[in-house]
Simulated scan of single mutants.
Amino acid sequence: MSSQTQSTLYAKLLGETATIRWEELQPFFANGSLLWVDASLDLVAVAEAVAGDDQSKVATWLTSGQLERISAEHAEDWQRRDPYLWAVVVAPWVLVQERAGSAAMH
């Protein structure tokens, strides 16, 4: 993928990234299509790598634990705290990230 294509894809994904509540993500968790992205990573860059099938980057994040399917413990924690979450869809996945220091969305 050319750098121009990557820049266009990054901009497109950035425009599709939005805050969301945990309750809206629960159906995606239930069907196993929700991926957690560590706060140390750029959510949109991870989405770009997934969309572009960059297996090397994705494998590195999976191995390091910086990208993984949402665990039941993680889901329960988010249900309890209701933090600000950012999400972007890269079908069939929904990538989600909690922003560091986020407050509840009440």
Rank of each mutant, 00 (worst) to 15 (best):
Val37Tyr: 03
Glu73Ile: 09
Ala91Tyr: 10
Leu9Gly: 02
Pro92Phe: 03
Met1Phe: 00
Ser40Ala: 10
Arg99Asn: 11
Trp61Glu: 05
Glu68Arg: 15
Arg21Asp: 06
Asp38Lys: 01
Ile20His: 00
Trp86Ser: 10
Val89Gln: 08
Asp38Glu: 09
Ser33Lys: 14
Thr5Ile: 05
Ala51Tyr: 08
Leu14Asn: 03
Ser102His: 08
Leu67Ile: 02
Ala72Gln: 04
Glu73Gly: 11
Tyr84Trp: 11
Lys12Gln: 03
Ala87Ser: 14
Tyr10Trp: 00
Ser64Met: 14
Arg81Gly: 02
Ser64Val: 11
Trp36Pro: 06
Ala59Ile: 03
Gly15Val: 05
Ala103Phe: 13
Lys57Pro: 05
Glu48Lys: 15
Leu35Lys: 08
Val96Cys: 11
Val90Asp: 01
Ala51Phe: 00
Glu24Gly: 13
Thr60Pro: 02
Ala91Glu: 14
Phe29Leu: 07
Thr19Pro: 05
Ala87Glu: 09
Arg21His: 08
Gln66Trp: 05
Trp86Asn: 08
Trp36Ser: 12
Asp77Asn: 12
Lys12Asp: 04
Trp22Asn: 06
Gly65Leu: 12
Val94Tyr: 09
Val89Ser: 12
Gly32Tyr: 04
Ile70Gln: 09
Val96Leu: 09
Ser71Met: 05
Leu35Pro: 04
Asn31Cys: 13
Ala75Asn: 05
Val94Ala: 10
Leu62Arg: 14
Leu43Lys: 14
Val90Lys: 08
Glu76Val: 06
Arg80Gly: 01
Leu35His: 04
Asp42Trp: 05
Ala51Met: 08
Ser7Met: 05
Leu9Trp: 01
Glu68His: 15
